[in-house]
Amino acid sequence: MPQVSMIPAPCRVLEALPQNAHDVRFVVEAPPLPAAAFAPEPGQFVMASLPGIGEAPFCVSALPGEGTAPGTFELLIRRTGRLTNLLTRLRPGETMYVRGPYGRRVDWERFEGASLIVMAGGLGLAPLRAFVRRALLRRDAFRRIDVMVGARSPDELLFKDELAAWKARRDDVHVRLIVDAAREGWGGRIGVITTLLDNFEGEVDGSHAFLCGPPVMYRHCLKRLLALGLYEGHLWLTLERRMRCGIGLCGNCQVSGHYLCQEGPLFSYRELRQLREAV
């Protein structure tokens, strides 16, 4: 019988890389669990904490051994409150406390042979980055890969170096960026992320789309993707909820009686549309 424990493991911070004024990308040593135990999948999350301060859920934005050194993983943490203020001040060599991974493990075989469309708004790129990395690592298993990234401004774009590296792969992955507003010097597009679907040149038949971003984005993107003809069961959304336990107990992430921390936070739209108050 699995035992319930909310005890975290100390994990050393290996790198702390500020992305902009409030987001820090952390490379973290995986919890010293039995080696196989810490094997997150794209879309899963961990609970990260500081003793005496508190704990919060963070999606895993790079998985161990997938563009990272084995035994390390990455989190992107935005400074928004007391806990994240202190977490984002951690320096290499210091310790954060981590438990997990938690959440649904999606079988990747279902995506194989399909084209992938990734749409990330703002912080939404943090979880979706793990999806893109996985897809590029197994590039031959997929057809066309489209990555669309929206941000408030060019400064707010996350993982800029990585976006540039993806862009440099040309036909391997079609990366397009868009920002809500920009000062002079931004040569790219300005507008909302759905406009990247105007005159969409990618593939629709059998494609899977992955969405994460602010709530307003979901509705509009879903409508556009459905209008393009994507199947409801192929539209994947990661939902944000403030999990307190991660193990299906505390109830904070409940939607229509479902505990998102275990059954999600990744859902297909086909699954989600049956849940009231989900999006």
Partner: peptide, 15 residues
């Protein structure tokens, strides 16, 4: 059954 989780620490951070 719902619960919230919280922390409390000593000022010196020892516990």
């Amino acid at each position: 059954t719902c619960f919230d989780v919280g922390d409390e620490g000593t000022l010196d951070g020892a516990a």
